[in-house]
């Protein structure tokens, strides 16, 4: 049976300042397919275009040309409001700097995507608590972002990314702001999510070692995919 395609990017280009003298071509005819349940590392130097690619992948931005199918739906031409819904239901973001909403507790942070999805108050609290417990953060549900360590914040962020059970998890340098030991812990969580929950995970990183841990490494340079290899010895 053909595996289900979660991400299908066809001939994606992204230009800034289109039609002006200082037109910038960031992505050149990208073609990429990610199947359901894959753990892919998107590797590239800074300035290689991997952030732009992540923005398009995460429905934060639209391609200048080409089509992008996410979970079977062409989303390259959707309106802002529709993209919001895609982000809400189909994508879970994990950022380098955690991106917690200040002033509110861990529990409420995890509740945010559920709230925008229209889940009722009681139901979303229950779901958020369940996720926090899964991440080992159950006891600290009432702590605010500034009362948690980096690793703890990132675990809350992962719980939040999982809230609406999205098709993919987009992790942008998730260990970048953490020390190596905590970083290891976070990576282990991703591995666990991949193996036990069969999540599709896209890890964006500039670190070759982290990328080597994953199932498949896609390397970007100057806005082009220059290599796409599967790890043979992936456990």
């Amino acid at each position: 049976m053909e595996p289900k395609k979660v991400i299908e990017m066809c001939d994606i280009c992204k230009n800034y300042y289109e039609g002006q003298e200082n037109e910038l071509k960031i992505l050149h005819h990208i073609n990429l397919t990610v199947n359901d349940g894959e753990f892919v590392a998107l590797v590239g130097e800074s300035g290689s275009g991997k952030s732009t690619m992540m923005n398009i992948m995460g429905a934060l931005d639209r391609p200048s040309s080409g089509t992008y199918y996410l979970d079977g739906q062409n989303i390259s031409t959707l309106k802002d409001e529709e993209l919001s819904e895609i982000r809400n239901l189909h994508i879970g973001f994990v950022f380098q700097n955690f991106c917690m909403i200040p002033r509110v507790t861990a529990l409420e942070n995890v509740c945010v995507p559920l709230m925008y999805a229209g889940v009722g108050r009681a139901a979303r609290k229950e779901r958020a608590m369940e996720l926090l417990e899964m991440m080992g953060m159950g006891e600290r549900y009432s702590h605010k972002s500034n009362e948690l360590s980096g690793g703890q914040n990132q675990r809350v962020a992962i719980a939040r990314a999982l809230a609406n059970d999205p098709a993919i998890i987009l992790a942008d340098e998730p260990t970048g702001a953490l020390d190596s030991k905590t970083g290891r812990l976070i990576m282990d969580i991703f591995h666990k999510l991949h193996k036990e929950q069969k999540k599709t995970i896209i890890l964006i990183t500039h670190s070759k070692e982290l990328a080597a841990e994953t199932q498949r490494q896609v390397t970007i340079s100057d806005g082009r995919i220059i290599s796409d290899v599967n790890s043979e010895n992936y456990r």
Binding site: S84, N88, I101, Y116
Partner: peptide
């Protein structure tokens, strides 16, 4: 930043 985070998490412009 909070607005950015909320939008990334699926907040519509109207929200």
């Amino acid at each position: 930043r909070e607005i950015g985070i909320r939008k990334a998490l699926g907040a519509k412009n109207r929200a």
